[in-house]
Design a protein around this nucleic acid. Structure first.
Lengths: 234, 234
DNA sequence: TGTTCGTAACGAACATGTTCGTCGCTGGGA
DNA sequence: TCCCAGCGACGAACATGTTCGTTACGAACA
């Protein structure tokens, strides 16, 4: 019955052609309206009046879709500290904190970002801003180039780790599992853990992140690249 | 027809009672025999002669199952450098390299580990070994405590990122997408990216990991904890 | 005008994760 | 000996991700 199909097409001439951009735009709308857990292939297909299979021409899989969505969201990261005044370390901290805040809004996106890193314009803006700050701080170009990668890796992984919903009992239990394990560490089996549980578990996520950032900036600033790395360009 | 059920039970008196340990052991067997992609709830249920729902009493979800499996696999990490002789930094590098090698064998496990960190005995051994090495290197106790966390976070996230199968064209494409984006960066929009693509993309994963590790160790060794962190124990 | 052919789109199918309501066994009390 | 209450186990159901083979459309050509 081809007539029925043809007619359904004719009746919807306004239907936009399937496009990667269109898919991502729709994904963003669904994300804001119903949350990330509703940003599924099927839901988007329904929204675009097609079948799930059609989307796979433009998007490799759900993870890549989420990464693309994240890239759009990255437009909300506040890069103004990069152009402002003040101590460069604090400004790096401000930019990464803003990045972290965006990731924390949509935890699953952080997880997606660990695997499939975005490469859109907003991500490039972020890279550029961080590079500018590092150079301003006197970090040699090559160290800065590798350094931004590590900074974003840590920020992303950190968000992914701390971003299991506060509501789920699972994360609570898992965290307690580790905490209990540390507190009950046997002095003979794990001499360096035993008695140090408090230290290992101390600090708020914010304090730890701030410290980690200082560790990284300090190390990036001081550590020259290995000699072998000067000319290799894959 | 209850008789059928009863008889099937009688005919299999050797069937072990459902146990978290049993589930994980079975998961390990399936992992070695058929790869991680076959370690599914349904496959395990079939292996244990039960339904998928039964497993959820002992395992919260697939991610936690994978984390538990990873914890078992962590037994293969070579911790002998921790007890050996030599420069402590190189021994940290050796331990983390071994850890990375285990993760690289089963990429999805690395991804699982970013979200749900293990807390089993093997993980504790790893923590203890790293702590021992840091202390040997003269790192203050509190800095070492926070430092091991960062070290493992980076090692894990790094494995998760570089561990998309070499076979899938997706990862290849995504990497090229980022590389192309960097190479074509406009000098006006991204002044710090333009012309520096080579630097940003240079180096083998191994060289970058080695550098990152030096960055971290150097920073961990030098950076004292913030004052506010001395007494907080959540 | 009528035919052919490549490409995009599609419907249906299969495997998976996760949850819900029910069922059957087991052990303790009358 | 019989009953029953609690609990672990279970089957079925639903939503999802992903793939396969087929189909409709429009452009090039005779």
């Amino acid at each position: 019955m081809p007539a029925a199909h043809a007619r359904s097409r004719r009746e919807r001439p306004a239907k936009p052609a399937l496009t990667r951009d269109g898919i991502i735009t729709t994904a963003l709308r669904v994300l804001r309206d119903e949350g990330l857990q509703r940003v599924t292939m099927r839901r988007l297909a329904q929204e675009l009046d097609t079948g799930p299979a059609s989307l796979y021409v433009y998007v490799a899989n759900t993870a890549e879709l989420h990464a693309a969505v994240l890239d759009e969201l990255l437009g909300e990261v506040d890069l103004s500290p990069a152009r402002g005044a003040g101590e460069w370390r604090e400004r790096v901290e401000a930019v990464l904190a803003s990045y972290g805040r965006v990731l924390h809004e949509y935890p699953s996106l952080a997880r997606a970002a660990v695997v499939a890193r975005p490469s859109g314009p907003n991500y490039l803006n972020l890279l550029d801003a961080l590079l500018a700050l590092l150079k301003e701080g006197g970090v040699p170009d090559d160290q800065a180039a590798w350094g931004v990668d590590v900074l974003l890796l840590v920020a992303t992984a950190d968000a992914a780790e701390h971003s299991t919903h506060p509501r789920t009992p699972h994360s609570e239990n898992e965290w307690n599992a580790l905490a209990d394990a540390l507190r009950n560490a046997s002095p003979t089996d794990h001499p360096h853990l035993a008695g140090h549980a408090a230290q290992l578990l101390s600090g708020t996520p914010e304090l730890r992140q701030a410290w980690t950032l200082r560790v990284l900036l300090d190390g990036i600033l001081r550590t020259p690249l290995p000699d072998a790395a000067q000319s290799s360009t894959p």
